[in-house]
Amino acid sequence: MRVSVQSDVFDPSQEAADFDANGGGAVVTFNGVVRDDTGTLQAMEIEHYPAMTEAALTEFAVTAKERFDLTNVMVIHRFGTLKPGEVIMMVATAAKHRKQAFQGADFLMDYLKSRAPFWKKEITKNGADWVDAKIADEDALKEW
């Protein structure tokens, strides 16, 4: 199991190649990328709560591993200033069968969205604004 909270850029292809399935027959990887819906985004600033972030992510990873019988799990999440197109985060899960691997990754994504202490601020040509949490993301947690 690997959990990393970092400002450094990482290579998701390399991380995927290095991810050990530990005998599992299914591996799911997901990366989130900074998107620019309006063509005005200059940067995304990601603030976090250093004393809490890694413990929270580790808790989600341990829960996912037990609940979905994962053979391995990895969570990487960046903070700091990111440009459009840069990778923000990555989740990888390995399990005996694909359903567990997909569900484990989905579970982790839902928890990262709404329970990990990160806050995104969009810096655009027209100013800066905090990204609002979506009700749909909060509702997604109830599915678990």
């Binding site: 709560y49 999440h77 990990a116 202490p117 990160f118 806050w119 905090w130 949490a133």
Partner: peptide
């Protein structure tokens, strides 16, 4: 000992 206040989180 420590209390933190913040908006709903927007990770992922």
């Amino acid at each position: 000992r420590t209390v933190a206040f913040f908006p709903p989180m927007t990770g992922g």
